[in-house]
Design a protein around this nucleic acid. Sequence first.
DNA 1: GAGCACTGC
Length: 830
Amino acid sequence: MPEKVHTYFGALEDQSSKKAPKAIPEPTLAEDVGRKKRRNKKRKRDEPTEEAQAHPNNVPARTEERVKDLPPAVNEPITVPSVSKEPELEASLDQTSAPKQKPKARPPKSFTDTKTNFTSLREKANSLYELRKKLPIFGHADEIRQRLREQDVMLLVGETGSGKSTQIPQFLVNEFWCRPTPAKVRQEDGSEKSITVGGCIAITQPRRVAAISLARRVAEEMGTPLGSSSPASKVGYSVRFDTSTSPSTRVKFLTEGMLLQEMLHDPWLTKYSAVVVDEVHERGINVDLVAGFLRNLVSGKREGRGGVPLKVVVMSATADMESLMGFFQEGFKEQEQEQKQISNGTTNGTTNGTSNGTSNGKSSEQGSRAITACHIKGRQFPVKTIYSPEPVHDFVDAALKIIFQIHYKEPMPGDILVFLTGQETVENLENLVNEYAIGMDPSLPKILVLPLFAALPQAAQQRVFAPAPPRTRKVILATNIAETSVTVSGVRYVVDCGKAKVKQFRTRLGLDSLLVKPISKSAAIQRKGRAGREAAGQCFRLYTEKDYLALDEANTPEILRCDLTQALLNMKARGVDDIVRFPFLTRPPREALEKALLQLFNIDALQDDGGISDIGLHLAKLPLSPTLGRVLLAASENGYDCLLDVIDIISCLSVENIFLNTTSEEKKEAAETARRDLYRREGDHLTMLSTVRAYAGENVDRKVWAERHLVSHRAMQSVMDVRKQLRAQCRQSKMLPREEQNGHYPDPSPDLILQSFLAGFATNTARLVPDGSYRTIVGNQTVAIHPSSVLFGKKVEAILYNEFVFTNRSYARGVSAVQMDWVGEALAGR
DNA sequence: GAGCACTGC
């Protein structure tokens, strides 16, 4: 039986004690994104077939007559015969609180599509509607709409399974405030310009897969084609390398990074009537920036939107709403104070209607200035927690015992998901389980061990999603990837080691460290929840209850753990002059901010007065770290050939490792032989270049080529995507000639290439000292060349490195040999 | 002698 669904709404009455309807598993977000072209082609091929299968009696319509009488894209109702009252459809008709608008005052653009089978799309949508009605959030549609009519900012806690990500955009899309609105904005020269503001809802997601699969699901539910597949499509998405929207798009799922990028070009987000920020609790650095910019946008005078409000919905799965509430309130307060000062302090009624954490909306004199909050309980089956009675020293060993204990005692079906720290522990445990399984009682069900980590080739990852063979229990050994990015169905038992590898940037040393640390309570709860998606489950924590209680409440926000150079560049490019006054959701330490500013000065991204330079503006628009972007600009001054070569290398540096890890001795030797013709004695940078050139020049079968050279085909596909994007961007900004010359590339010039790199990485250098070790030139830290480098074990005058990381010791990764006088010149030039 | 997870016009 499902747990009781308990739902309450702000300060309103408690509606608990309703029984939950039968759970519907959310669509899994685990599907492979694949490559853009392949998917786009596939989608076009597959969709009609899928529909035909779903409705065997429905002959796919070729006809135009069905299509031509479709209403325009906006306000097109889906007829739901069995439902007497569908709140969503009434939204645009309900004018009790909305200002009256002539229905056809400004008819939205209509685009016709003669190819899509709209009838079958609608039938699908109608059948999905029955499932939507059962989502915990569904009953609150009216209330949510009502509140957002009155207020601009809403905070929504929606637990896993509440349906918030798919339903909220549908609740809002037909609201009167969500229509394109004509507005006048004052331009820099003082003249007025007429523009259209709004009409579209943006929903941000931290991950690409989530953005794409949510868009696909919402398109189905709304009975509209997806993205660019039809000009009449109302739902689209936008992620790097893959944007699929149409002229009629009204609901757009995008990654946080993509929204930031859009904001660089359109700071007032004039396309949007609302921005829904989903999964804020994950607190990636991009979501912090988005939140800061949005706060400035809603609490400011909206002059760039001609005064048209922007609605902001901030959604989180965990209940830490107080800090968010305070965050947005402060923005409104600051603005009130400013206005007070302007109007000489004679305004009245400045009390904010949100003092006790909730707002009843109507009473607030600030109207749209108030913030409203609501909490929707999720749908989750109960999960029993079993703690280790004693502290555990070896969690691999402890996990092994628990896995077999579960397997012997617990009934089938019920797969086991084990959370470990990394590839190494996963592979160790994999071997152990397989060894023990050999001696298992043959009358017992079999065990199928499946590793799952990001570096695993795609095909191996997919095995995890296949259902277990008969009489077999799946044991999935996963890293953090299974905590948020990937949902595995069939899991009823979770084993949680309580640890994860965490990356932490140490400002003072300019060093990234990757260390095993205890997870937070909210991560522990998230892991546990993975056992209760489909039925009641159990979670075995390989730590004591006391240890659990001592854990941090939430994960450390990324903004406190990473290099801030890129974030600050983005802010500067958006015209934030005073970084210290920027509304940070969590303020990073002053030292970290200063260090990042210094770095931006060092690469000429800022002028002496702290304002952004032309170089900085250019860098902000590149899909690269500012440092790599600087290298690209430097290379462009060394001629087309150098720039093309540097693009190839930068493309490699901005994706995961392109060389496959070799585990066995045997493979290692094979790899050495296979890769010998790729290795360059100048170092890793030139080795990457020769690899990209060889891969790109392979016309027969790149996959086979990659396998033979023990190069990751998946990584190389990303490299080619980045390379293409960077080349296109360089052509656009005239750094490369318009035409792509597909000719023969001359031999690279290692000196020019490495000198270009020094323009961004002059401080990432080390020299050989008499004892045979390397010391950083700035800071005099000892650093060792990473074993994955082609220069590992070699001694050269000086090295340039891409990354300085600490695991067991300090390593330089991505290393090339440079001359000391180049380094001297690069450092003197600043 | 070694590789947590995400992400970008």
